[in-house]
Design a protein around this nucleic acid. Sequence first.
DNA 1: GGATTGATTGTTGAT
DNA 2: ATCAACAATCAATCC
Length: 159
Amino acid sequence: MKTGKGKGAVKRDTKEALKPVDDRKVGKRKAVERKGKMEKKAKKDPNKPKRPPSAFFVFLEEFRKTFKKENPNVKAVSAVGKAGGEKWKSLTPAEKAPYEAKAAKRKTEYEKLINAYNKKQESSADEGEEESEKSKEIHDDDEESGQDDDEEEEDDDDD
DNA sequence: GGATTGATTGTTGAT
DNA sequence: ATCAACAATCAATCC
């Protein structure tokens, strides 16, 4: 349900006027001081859920295989990125649908991880919620990967 | 030898 | 709402 005003929250009419940034090249954020921890406050995160791959990345995963397969000579990662980017834009929403679906699911899992991450962060080490390794035993029961209904919505769009 | 960059878009987190 | 940075990847490249 949308509140009274449905859309209109964001107005992109004056795209030229208030366009955020033309290109993501806002700033060369290449060097993301990952290891160079100048700050001694390099707190290590027991479980830091990395950001879920967007539909584009999910698509890229498969695209990379295809790309490398047809271009075994290509060694630059940027090559796949460029090719994938153009291809991605060339794909139709219907083709991106399965990728988006997976990305959406990934996001849900991410939120769950974040929940646990936040909880751990907040709660001091007092709570030993660390899974007991000694209790870790192999169970012969089904190893369901939690793959719930894999409904492939065959939505053939026929215009 | 190891850390780092390079390039793509999307998404999330912070302001 | 909007900016900013990061998510995978892997070889080349720099020091």
